[in-house]
Design a protein around this nucleic acid. Sequence first.
DNA 1: CCCGGATCCTGCTGGC
DNA 2: TGCCAGCAGGATCCGG
Length: 296
Amino acid sequence: MPELPEVETIRAGLAEYVIGRRIQRAEVLRDRSVRRHEGGPEAFCAQVAGLEIQAVARRGKFLWLVLAVDGEPFTALAAHLGMSGQFIYHSVAPEQPHKHLRVRLYLDEGVLDFIDQRTFGYLALSELAPTSDGLPGGVGSDLPLVSAIAAHISRDLLDPALDRTGLVARIRAKNVAIKRLLLDQNVVSGVGNIYADEALWRAQIHYATPGSALNEAELAELLEHAAAVMGSALEQGGTSFDALYVNVNGESGYFAHSLNAYGRGGEPCYCCGTIMKRIPFAGRSSTFCPKCQRKK
DNA sequence: CCCGGATCCTGCTGGC
DNA sequence: TGCCAGCAGGATCCGG
């Protein structure tokens, strides 16, 4: 499942292959994959044709291509990968398209395929809006512009423009379980279930601890762990469990071997040997060590 | 505003 | 071997 390191791996790969390319036309094979685009598939195809890809930016798990007309930023092609979205670039379109190919962009050189098994992801053209703080809209673009579709999302832990002090204060102001806050993209973006469990395990914090019950030092350390674990995952090309996450060349990441918490329910904690617990929480599962991560 | 739960979707897994 | 229920989960929406 693509979280921040996986999305950033894809962003960097896209930047390498598609910047400077022109979108000649688009083909939508599954209408649902452009459901967030106003006007539907026909409008999407009509509006994207002829635009030039100038940059590839990201905020949290939201990606957008900066599309230009006559060299000037004009609009954004926003993408969310959801659970299973992939971008695969082919210099020559394969004879047999992928089973879950949903949208294909024909470029002046090669094709860019949007593949998505579970169709939680989507593509949509959206306005490029000025950022509220005047800083770059996200990672990968110097422009103080953000895709309108990603504008409501907080900056992420790998964004140099993130105000970490402000983030700590916002978390401390909430009487909500810390794991919920980590997963809330309006609080801090990019963290999903895997890296939330990893960061909490490293910081030895119980997932249900209210944000207001943690002091500034504890929260600063937790955020440092979250940034570090995602940074390490990024260096290894992201976390892959199966073929659902691959980079733009179709290759898997290697970070799954380095996970200490996620997926380790019933196995001994790498820190103290206690059997890790896995319990339902907030509509997903939480894996934690009952000894290292005690409830306050 | 705050909080928690339901919802969307597909393919894989496990129980019988 | 077949069938079907259950599970995975990010963002969004909706109820209390």
